[in-house]
């Protein structure tokens, strides 16, 4: 012990060379993460701050922004029925598509967790739609499929259902074509559920077998509780995805009919880039950040009530 004291003193007295400093973890850490920090400030923080400022201005990008206080928000909440229509359409879409996609993902994951020679192939087949589903190609396909002379009506007629619905033309069905497209892409959630299912200790099921538990008891008492962290993770991811949906509404339905499928992000895009109301668009973005942020926070705060973490 006594020997060591002078040593550190000597070390401290020595002037560190530039190379030594550079090679210390404190400096190297910043050298390696510098790209991220610069990018984060330049492409996230500065734009966010700008956006916050613009939210309180009238700004058409050609002339300088004019401060107009809370006018954008007043307009949004009290004087813009389309804003509420787009909010309602997005909410409807999220409320139905997210749980349905997760339930579908879980059901198929339960089906595929059973080991067989073909499980790799099945997994790939069910995953495929989610890999291509958000592309423009599929959006165009969907538009054709649900046209009144499209394949959906034709197939329904072929099996004897006299169906001649203009799916995309009715306020009660148009949004469902988008929800079906979202549910169709359950693949990536399914993969996450599959890896969650594989992590459940087999011993738990063995105990259940000994006690004579049926398949439903096994599912609700073992599988589902053990899977809640995965459900939680998927739920947050899919909620954010759902609120941000854009391409589907923009290409398949263009918000029609009567704004019943006008997604929030599409209306925000139209305001900012079609009508050049950048200030209004920023105000809309901040309202959405507030909504999604609050929902995420509520989920995080309530997770100890329903999410089971093995200690």
């Amino acid at each position: 012990m006594a020997n060591k004291v002078p040593k550190t003193v000597i070390l401290r007295k020595q002037q560190k060379t530039f190379a030594q400093r550079l090679n210390s973890q404190g400096v190297a850490g910043y050298v390696f993460t510098a790209l991220f920090i610069v990018g984060f400030l330049a492409f996230m923080i500065i734009p966010m701050a700008m956006s916050f400022g613009f939210a309180f201005t009238k700004y058409n990008i050609l002339s300088p922004p004019q401060f107009n206080g809370l006018d954008n928000f007043k307009q949004m909440f009290t004087n813009d029925p389309v804003f509420w229509q787009s909010f309602k359409a997005t909410m409807y879409y999220v409320v139905f598509s997210v749980p349905m996609r997760l339930i579908m993902a879980l059901l198929i994951a339960l089906l595929l967790v059973k080991k067989s020679k073909a499980s790799g192939l099945y997994r790939a087949l069910f995953y495929l739609p989610s890999i291509v589903g958000s592309s423009v190609a599929i959006a165009i396909l969907w538009k054709r499929m649900f046209a009144s002379d499209g394949v959906v009506n034709s197939l329904l007629q072929a099996v004897g259902i006299d169906c001649n619905i203009a799916w995309l033309g009715r306020t009660d069905t148009a949004i469902w074509t988008l929800i079906i497209l979202a549910v169709w892409q359950f693949g990536s959630s399914m993969l996450i559920f599959l890896s969650g299912l594989k992590q459940i200790p087999v011993a738990l099921y063995e105990v259940a077998d000994v006690e004579g538990a049926g398949p439903f008891t096994r599912f609700f008492k073992i599988t589902l509780p053990m899977l809640t962290p995965t459900v939680f993770f998927n739920l947050i991811n899919q909620l954010i995805n759902g609120f941000m949906a854009f391409t589907q509404s923009y290409i398949i339905t263009q918000g029609k009919p009567r704004n019943s499928t006008l997604f929030y992000t599409v209306y925000m895009y139209q305001n900012s880039f079609t009508y050049n109301k950048m200030g209004y668009g920023c105000a809309m973005a901040w309202f959405m950040i507030l909504i999604v942020g609050t929902l995420t926070l509520i989920l995080f705060k309530t997770q100890n009530k329903w999410v089971y973490y093995e200690s």
Partner: peptide, 16 residues
Amino acid sequence: AMMLPFQMIMIPQYIL
């Protein structure tokens, strides 16, 4: 940064 969607910063990024 991982959680924040592009849609939420596209307007100011465009302006920039």
